[in-house]
Design a protein around this nucleic acid. Structure first.
Ligand SMILES: [Zn+2]
Ligand SMILES: [Zn+2]
Ligand SMILES: [Zn+2]
Ligand SMILES: [Zn+2]
Lengths: 164, 164
DNA sequence: GGCTTTTTGAAAATAATTTTCACTATCATT
DNA sequence: AATGATAGTGAAAATTATTTTCAAAAAGCC
C-alpha cells in the first residue's frame, strides 16, 4: 500500500537525495507541520500535528525526522530553557528568514525579530573574524537571544504586589 | 554534630540572608566547587566534586543549591546543546567576568572569550533599546554564542577523509 | 537550649529523548 | 514492473536529566 506524498513542495526530495538520504512520507509530513505554523514547536507538538493528520506516524519517527532535518540544515533547533527542544524551519515560507529571539523569562513567550540586523552584521563580522584568528575556529553559526520581561508580565507583577 | 563551614569567602552567607534564604553547608560546598574550576560543570560534575569532598551531600541537594544560586544571580546556567545544564560562577575569582562562548559542534569543547566587547557593546545597546521600544520588553539579559569547528576537529576530518 | 521553619537526602516519580528490533518502504537495478 | 539490498519505521523498553515526596536534620530566632 503506497501512501502517496503529503501536499507540499517537492524540493525536500532533492535535498535529501543530495545528502544520500531517502525521501519518505514522515519526513515530508514533519516538514509540512513546520511550514504550516510560525510557532516554535516542540517535538511533541510536531508529533501531535503530524499524528493527527497521519495516525500511522509515531513519535520516534518524528524525533528522527527532526534530527535529520536539522542535520541537513532545513530545520533549526532552539532551546528556550524549558527543558525541551524547539524547532522551526530554517527558511520559512512566510518571509521569516534569519531572525533572533526575544524570550520572556516569566511567561515563556517568544518573539521573533529581524530588526537592527545591520548593527548586528557589523558586530558579527568583527567578532567572527577575531575568533577565527585568535582561537582558530571555523565559525559556522551563531546564537543570539535576549531575555526579558514582557509588558503583560510586568503588569501582572505590579498587580500582585499592589494587592498584598 | 556540626559540620563546620567549607573553606571560602563568607559573603555567600550575607547574600543568602539578604534574599531570606538560609546559609547552609551544601550551598557553600557547591559554590566552592564552582570557584575551584574554570570549566562549565554539569550538575553531576558538581555533585562528583562536592560528594567527593563531603560524602554526605546528595545529588538532589546539589541540583537545589545550583537552582538557588542561579536564582540569586551568583551562578549562571548555560545550555550547550548536549541535553544538560552547565553551570559557572557569575563572577569568577580568576578574573573571568562577563564572557561569551565559542562551542565546537564537533567535540563539544567550549572556549570562553572576552574579546571584541566594544563592538558587542555597541550592538547590544542599539538592539536592546530597539527591542524595548518596539516590543515593550524589559531586557534583562542576553545570550551570545558562536558555533564552529576547532582546529583539531578540522584536522581529524581531513585525516579521515584522506585515509579512505 | 528549645522552637519554628527551611533544608536535606534517599528513593520514587517524571519527562524528554534514544535505543532496540522485527517489519516495511525506498530506490537502484534488472 | 518485479527484485533485492539497504535505509527507515514504529511500538515498546531503556536511558538520562531533573523533580517530587516525605521523614529526619539543621538553621536561625527567642
Ligand atoms: Zn511574559
Ligand atoms: Zn523563531
Ligand atoms: Zn572540536
Ligand atoms: Zn563560560
Amino acid at each position: 500500500m503506497t501512501r502517496g506524498i503529503p501536499p507540499g513542495p517537492p524540493w525536500l526530495s532533492k535535498v535529501l537525495h543530495g545528502y544520500g538520504y531517502r525521501y519518505t512520507f514522515p519526513r515530508e509530513a514533519v516538514l509540512q507541520a513546520l511550514s504550516d505554523t510560525r510557532e516554535h514547536l516542540s517535538a511533541e507538538d510536531v508529533y501531535l500535528i503530524v499524528h493527527g493528520r497521519y495516525p500511522q506516524i509515531g513519535l520516534t519517527t518524528v524525533y528522527r525526522a527532526l534530527d535529520l532535518l536539522v542535520k541537513i540544515g532545513v530545520v533549526v533547533k532552539f532551546d528556550f530553557g524549558d527543558g525541551r527542544g524547539r524547532f522551526e524551519l530554517a527558511f520559512h515560507p512566510s518571509a521569516k528568514g534569519h531572525h533572533h529571539h526575544l524570550v520572556c523569562t516569566c511567561c515563556g513567550r517568544v518573539v521573533d525579530y529581524t530588526d537592527w540586523l545591520e548593527k548586528e552584521k557589523e558586530f558579527l563580522q568583527t567578532t567572527e573574524k577575531g575568533l577565527k584568528q585568535k582561537y582558530d575556529f571555523e565559525i559556522t553559526d551563531h546564537l543570539i537571544q535576549f531575555c526579558g520581561k514582557c509588558a503583560e508580565c510586568r503588569n501582572m507583577t505590579n498587580k500582585v504586589k499592589g494587592g498584598e
